[in-house]
Design a protein around this nucleic acid. Sequence first.
DNA 1: AAAAAAC
Length: 489
Amino acid sequence: MSDTAVTPSTATFDQFGLAPDILKAVKESGYTIPTPIQEQAIPVVLAGRDMMGAAQTGTGKTASFSLPIIQRLLPQASTSASPARHPVRALILTPTRELADQVAANVQAYAKHTALRSAVVFGGVDMNPQSEQLRRGVEILIATPGRLLDHVQQKTANLGQVQILVLDEADRMLDMGFLPDLQRILNLLPKERQTLLFSATFSGEIKKLAATYLRNPQTIEVARSNSTATNVTQVVYEVAEGDKTGAVVQLIRERGLKQVIVFCNSKIGASRLARSLERDGVVATAIHGDRTQNERMQALDAFKRGEIEALVATDVAARGLDIAELPAVINFDLPFNAEDYVHRIGRTGRAGASGDALSLCSPNERKQLADIEKLIKRPLDVQRLTVEAPVRHHHEERAPRRERSSEGREDRGSRRRTGASSGSYDRPHHHRAQPVDDFFLKPYEPSPSSVRKIEEAAAAAAPQKPASKQPLAALLGGFGMPRKSSSST
DNA sequence: AAAAAAC
């Protein structure tokens, strides 16, 4: 953030008339100068107007709506313990669980000196703690649509007093087929409310959504849509499909990349690549929709803590995720949807920092490349990449499955092995044409009976403690929580 | 052609 000190803007957060408790939190978050979208959006939201915003995350979008929402709700903040005094007054919807979590963390930080309560609900995790939190009452609720509707159905969430609705990454939500869910949610809200819609693009569908649910919205656009940040250097490397894994390793090593997100087009591809990178000595883990929510969160947290060099992701991580100081993004595959390219590379070069967007393009991906160049309205720098000494050992026999299985699952591999204890680990291996081994791709799920045994054992070991603070994941030796370990109702 | 999201 120190770079922003040279920004010629003289604006400060003081100009908006935000409460001291909010300004204090802003200061503690390290922000001093509002970003362009904040400068434009905060007064509009404070005035109670509906708004359509075109901005990507990392432009300060979350604060641009969170801060004025907190300000607007402040007069109604209650210190009462009664849940009835804490109805949901602001609802923020996001397309992915990780994004919901991230927005919630921001809201929590900005509201921490106020009496307002916030909570986040999304699928893939136990409903009960969420229900309990909702029962105690929250004024600001961040959610993914499906789980929110689940809570509504269970009567653990009541949306009858919502005054402000935020649709974050609205275009993405439509892409993902959330329209019916959004319509159901919108029908549960009071007609008299403020609605804010954020979208990367204003397509016909988005305009229709806005025309239906927003009233006389003010439009705010900070960057031309589909533009890419100028501080991100984009390079495309022509490479044979089979050389891609070697190319990723080479780029990481040659450029000395400490951290990188590597995007793949498929979940299986992401899992496979993470495993291959591990074998070449890159600390890597995969994040995609076939992994449990616990595994996804652990992967992201470990990456943010700097414990992982390469986060191999599907487009679940393409939008909105804010990872500080990410120096580079690699496209292992070029996305089929050109817009996703813009979002993917938007993970780097954030908050004014510079970043590299390195894309691998095999001969059969030329069409995708052309689509991207058309969208961003400029040709990309295409270079030929010679993959030196690909880490392949064609002369070696394929390892028997039994031996490989001793490595454990792909995500366990993120904890680097020490040479001594793993005899089979350094064994040469194949890099391509490996049959997809179900063992590595299927998430590990202990049987319900074994989970019960472990829980019983844990309870017996610590009978004094009312609720074991030890997460079940830890008891399972680092494996993720099984998807359905506990009763949902 | 693939990803995401409720159970």
